[in-house]
Design a protein around this nucleic acid. Structure first.
Lengths: 184, 184
DNA sequence: CGACACATGTAACACGTTACATGATTTG
DNA sequence: CAAATCATGTAACGTGTTACATGTGTCG
């Protein structure tokens, strides 16, 4: 549910048609987010269905193929709401890494150790890779910001893995938590 | 696509039926991940469809309601693959926050500033909230790890916001990047 | 002409989410 | 008996993803 809002942002700067939106979207996200053309149009349809945007044939277009989209009042309001700090941002961390560690950690402690170290290596590799790319290409602002966010997040996850290892060690050394199941 | 694999992990420890899986799943993720019962069963169906699990009525169950699921060889293999560091882990950061900053930053620089500061405040609040909870309840291992990952990630995003501000300031002060559009 | 960019769409599918339906068993 | 827990499922919907179809305009 971010493509939808992404288009909302672009439309917030003025009317545009689908093809244009797609290009802008990719350019601005530094090709981080590849949009299939189909998705643009289906998403635009949904925006229109929900009353956040409306469309009309583009008068400036000779061949009349283009369909121009613009925000409605409701769309502008929704955009404002989203750009502010709305609830869905504070989402819980539901991703593969967290899932693996949580489930593996509460099962076999040795498995947990293996999973942690496998991912530490992977994250370190990714980190080096991103840093290398960051130095090499030095593309536009978008690419730089994308590299930045990847770096800080990879570092965060690495720090988390260290923390996990430490906590598991402490627990196994005789904490109140048994490593087995049923810890409710 | 993490629920699916989550169930795979649990099944990897031995056969179980749906209701039990649901409870284990929630207990082990520290209620981070609330599963609707329906989702468990549909996901199990999909696992069976894809040949990763198979089921049969539970012989131990008197009333014969329970349906027992266990991994197939393919399922065990898939699990092993997933627990190692497989590709989908290195996913690109596609979330609301990144989307907002990227799109807003390449548009109106003043809007970018507002978005950044609004989210800095929100993230700080969430951070304090999580820290407070972490001290107060001190639940099981799962809850502790969840709190940990939230904290390190919130800190990472805060650091990123600072970085963004800095980069935008530098660019506006006369870098090579114009803040306007079309930076291809 | 042929290739490529422009421009819009349809169809099928994946997963996750929620609400709801349906019963059996246990327990106060 | 009534309520809670156990246990399994169906139905509908939302978004994201991919592949494919279709046609026009432009430029070498």
């Amino acid at each position: 549910m971010a493509v939808r809002e992404g288009l909302l942002v672009l439309l917030g700067e003025g009317p545009r048609h689908g093809y244009d939106l797609r290009n802008e979207f990719e350019a601005r996200t530094g090709a981080l987010w590849r949009l299939n053309s189909g998705q643009v149009y289906t998403t635009l349809e949904r925006l229109e269905r929900d009353g956040l945007a409306e469309s009309s044939p583009d008068g400036d277009d000779a061949s009349g193929r283009r369909r121009n989209y613009r925000l409605t009042a409701a769309g502008a309001e929704e955009l404002r709401r989203w750009l502010g700090a709305h609830a869905r941002d504070g989402e819980l961390p539901r991703d593969d890494l967290v899932m693996k560690i949580l489930l593996a950690a509460s099962g076999d402690p040795r498995l947990a150790g293996e999973v942690i170290s496998a991912h530490r290596h992977q994250l370190l590799e990714r980190l080096q890779e991103v840093r290398r790319e960051q130095r090499r290409v030095a593309g536009g602002m978008a690419a730089r910001l994308v590299a930045d966010v990847q770096i800080v997040r990879l570092e965060a996850d690495l720090r988390w893995l260290d923390l996990c290892e430490q906590r598991l060690r402490d627990a196994n050394r005789g904490g109140t938590d048994r490593p087995g199941r049923r810890e409710s």
